[in-house]
Amino acid sequence: MKKIGAITVGQAPRVDVTPDIEPLLRGITLVQRGALDGMTKEELKAIEPEEGDYVLVSRLKDGTSVKMAEKHILPRIQKIITELNEEGMEAILMLCTGQFPHFESKVPLFYPQVLLQYFAEAVIGEKTLGVLTPDESQFPQSIQRWKENGVKNVLVEAVSPYTEADKVPEAAKRLKDKGADMIVLDCIGYSEAMKQALHEAVDIPAILGRTVAARFIAELYNEGKEL
């Protein structure tokens, strides 16, 4: 059985994510690690974002959400990548749709953000992309990232998958009312259930980060097993 490393920028295991992706990964074992594993409340407080920081939002082991400045966790992520390489992983998947700098890895390292980027760019064309992101502080970086990646028309709404899951349909309606032709649920925290609720509220296509990434991994590594 192949082993794939899975790194969350929060704390592992991501029991909120695995029910949606493990059925797609038959024949593959996920080895999870978290950039915030073992950190105390005081240490978590010290990595909160300040003005101008690239903001990430993730989940702690106790189910609560956490907001952090990306710059503080990059060395911790590189350390985990190095360890997973040494443990013999076939590849490594980032369980986060944020944008990251280059990390050193001897095995393939997959970023959901990149997969989402090409997926969306391939189908959106001149139409308007609606983006759901967990926190309003992420609006500037989200708009900039999607426009830099070739999407001309971008709308963003904030709804946390960790504390406001029931508000996803309402946020999707706001995006559609503003003119969105397609929606990206731009955080690993958004689930299949949230996507289904979105579809029941608005009749436009939607892309879910966690399953796009899982299907990509399955295509490469599930040894011909039926998806």
Rank of each mutant, 00 (worst) to 15 (best):
residue 32 Q to Y: 01
residue 32 Q to V: 04
residue 33 R to G: 04
residue 33 R to C: 07
residue 34 G to Q: 09
residue 34 G to C: 13
residue 35 A to H: 00
residue 36 L to D: 00
residue 38 G to N: 09
residue 38 G to W: 03
residue 39 M to W: 15
residue 40 T to H: 08
residue 40 T to V: 11
residue 41 K to L: 14
residue 41 K to R: 08
residue 42 E to S: 10
residue 42 E to G: 07
residue 42 E to K: 14
residue 43 E to V: 08
residue 44 L to G: 06
residue 45 K to S: 14
residue 46 A to Q: 14
residue 47 I to W: 14
residue 48 E to Q: 15
residue 48 E to T: 15
residue 50 E to L: 15
residue 50 E to Y: 14
residue 51 E to P: 09
residue 51 E to Y: 10
residue 51 E to V: 15
residue 52 G to R: 13
residue 52 G to I: 13
residue 52 G to D: 11
residue 53 D to E: 13
residue 54 Y to N: 10
residue 54 Y to E: 11
residue 55 V to I: 15
residue 56 L to C: 08
residue 56 L to I: 09
residue 57 V to Y: 02
residue 58 S to V: 06
residue 58 S to C: 07
residue 60 L to T: 14
residue 62 D to L: 13
residue 62 D to P: 05
residue 62 D to Y: 12
residue 63 G to M: 12
residue 63 G to I: 12
residue 64 T to V: 13
residue 64 T to A: 13
residue 64 T to D: 14
residue 64 T to S: 15
residue 64 T to W: 04
residue 65 S to R: 00
residue 65 S to V: 06
residue 66 V to Y: 06
residue 66 V to D: 00
residue 66 V to N: 03
residue 67 K to H: 11
residue 68 M to R: 02
residue 68 M to P: 01
residue 69 A to R: 13
residue 71 K to E: 15
residue 72 H to K: 08
residue 72 H to M: 12
residue 73 I to Y: 06
residue 73 I to S: 06
residue 74 L to P: 01
residue 74 L to F: 07
residue 75 P to T: 12
residue 75 P to M: 13
residue 76 R to C: 07
residue 76 R to H: 08
residue 79 K to L: 11
residue 80 I to Y: 07
residue 80 I to D: 03
residue 81 I to Q: 05
residue 81 I to W: 03
residue 82 T to M: 11
residue 83 E to P: 00
residue 84 L to R: 05
residue 85 N to R: 09
residue 86 E to S: 11
residue 87 E to T: 04
residue 88 G to D: 07
residue 88 G to R: 05
residue 89 M to L: 08
residue 90 E to N: 08
residue 91 A to N: 13
residue 91 A to Y: 04
residue 91 A to W: 02
residue 93 L to S: 05
residue 93 L to Q: 05
residue 94 M to E: 00
residue 95 L to H: 03
residue 96 C to E: 10
residue 97 T to D: 04
residue 98 G to K: 03
residue 98 G to R: 01
residue 100 F to R: 04
residue 100 F to T: 07
residue 100 F to V: 04
residue 100 F to P: 05
residue 100 F to N: 08
residue 101 P to D: 09
residue 101 P to L: 07
residue 101 P to M: 12
residue 102 H to W: 04
residue 102 H to R: 10
residue 102 H to M: 10
residue 103 F to C: 04
residue 103 F to Q: 06
residue 104 E to A: 11
residue 104 E to G: 01
residue 104 E to P: 01
residue 104 E to L: 10
residue 104 E to K: 10
residue 105 S to V: 09
residue 105 S to L: 08
residue 106 K to M: 09
residue 107 V to N: 10
residue 108 P to C: 08
residue 109 L to D: 08
residue 109 L to V: 03
residue 109 L to N: 06
residue 110 F to K: 04
residue 110 F to I: 15
residue 111 Y to T: 02
residue 111 Y to D: 03
residue 112 P to F: 00
residue 112 P to G: 01
residue 113 Q to T: 02
residue 113 Q to S: 14
residue 113 Q to N: 14
residue 113 Q to P: 01
residue 116 L to N: 00
residue 118 Y to Q: 12
residue 118 Y to G: 10
residue 119 F to G: 01
residue 120 A to T: 14
residue 120 A to F: 01
residue 121 E to L: 12
residue 121 E to T: 09
residue 121 E to F: 03
residue 121 E to M: 07
residue 122 A to I: 02
residue 122 A to L: 06
residue 122 A to G: 13
residue 123 V to Y: 09
residue 123 V to P: 00
residue 124 I to N: 05
residue 125 G to I: 08
residue 126 E to Q: 12
residue 126 E to H: 12
residue 126 E to K: 03
residue 127 K to P: 00
residue 127 K to A: 09
residue 127 K to C: 01
residue 129 L to P: 00
residue 129 L to T: 01
